[in-house]
Simulated scan of single mutants.
Amino acid sequence: MNTLLRMVSNRFIRLVGNLVKVVSYPFHFLMHDLRFTIPEFSKAKLKSKNASAIPKVIWQTNYSSRCTLPIYVNYLFNRLMSLDYDYRYVSTESRELYMKEYASSDAYYAYYAYLKLNDGAAQADLWRMVNLYNNGGVYMDIDATLVWPISLILKEKYDALYIKYKKNDAEFTNFFLATTAKNTHYKSVINKIVFNINGYKGLKKKGVYNTTGPAVLNEILDGQEVHSLRRGYVCIQGAFTNEYFQYLDKPRGKWTHKHEDDVVKC
């Protein structure tokens, strides 16, 4: 029954999201310069009744907190689905400061590798892993949408939760991540990303996806027993927004437009 309700919720969210997108085209045509602001911090509105080993905080980042209507509606909907969670938005500038302070030790020198990245999405890939390794919590891409209240998804027994992306459930994604701090898999992912960046010229498969993105996560998790769910039951992408609205102020800013030779400063 719970699975059925989640799928119904998934379909309903996509329907509402499509309506938001349809309305947003004429809205931003008429209000071309109007933007909304995602707050840096939003305190939990409710006291949670559900225990969770994973810290109750949601982390997000983007190239700017000033956003279009669909992105803002998506943010508001996710807050509705996470009323018992704190919310933190981290800017591009704050990401770099965080990496400098917490990821420049002998442990993995991730900060110095981070400085070699020319792409914001690649930087966010590395930052999310370092941040979650240090602090724990839930990371979601700015275009990700929860399909069910997050406190009902993250059971007390979970020390981490991953979602499967492909239809055949053969691939993990990193647009949603939930973990306790000091997850050893995350440490391995960080080390592998740093290795890829420092040895970028010699990589057989380059680009954001293979260097810092889901390919690294899948390599580390291959053969490992972890808690996972299909994305349709947890979190989906593009329900309320699309590339046009996400990058209205940064045309062709999505990582898919970055040539593989330009991802890392060699």
Rank of each mutant, 00 (worst) to 15 (best):
L5D: 00
M7S: 08
M7G: 04
V8P: 01
S9H: 00
L15K: 08
N18T: 07
L19I: 08
V20D: 04
V22W: 08
S24N: 06
S24E: 07
F29C: 13
L30G: 02
M31A: 12
L34I: 15
F36L: 15
T37S: 14
I38M: 03
P39N: 07
P39G: 05
K47Y: 07
S48M: 06
A53W: 05
I54F: 04
I54R: 01
T61P: 00
T61S: 15
N62E: 12
Y63A: 02
Y63V: 00
C67D: 01
C67N: 01
Y72G: 06
Y75E: 09
L76W: 01
F77P: 01
F77C: 02
N78Y: 00
L80I: 02
S82N: 01
E93V: 07
S94L: 09
R95E: 14
L97T: 00
M99H: 01
S104L: 04
S105F: 10
D106C: 05
D106M: 05
Y108F: 11
Y112R: 06
L117R: 08
Q123S: 11
L126A: 12
W127I: 10
V130Q: 13
Y133C: 06
N134V: 05
G136M: 06
G137W: 00
T145P: 08
L146I: 11
V147M: 12
L152D: 14
Y158R: 03
D159G: 06
L161S: 04
Y162E: 13
I163A: 02
Y165N: 13
K166W: 14
K167E: 15
D169A: 11
A170W: 04
E171F: 15
N174I: 06
F175H: 13
T180A: 01
K182S: 11
N183K: 03
V189F: 07
V189W: 01
I190C: 11
K192P: 01
V194E: 00
N196W: 07
Y200M: 02
G202H: 05
K204G: 00
Y209K: 03
N210T: 11
N210H: 14
T211C: 12
T211S: 09
P214F: 12
P214G: 02
N218P: 07
N218C: 09
I220P: 03
I220T: 06
G223R: 08
Q224C: 09
E225S: 13
H227L: 03
L229G: 04
V234P: 05
C235S: 14
I236L: 14
G238A: 00
A239D: 07
N242Y: 10
N242E: 01
E243D: 08
F245G: 01
F245T: 02
Q246Y: 02
D249H: 10
G253L: 04
G253D: 05
K254M: 03
W255S: 15
T256Q: 12
K258W: 02
H259L: 11
E260N: 10
D262Q: 13
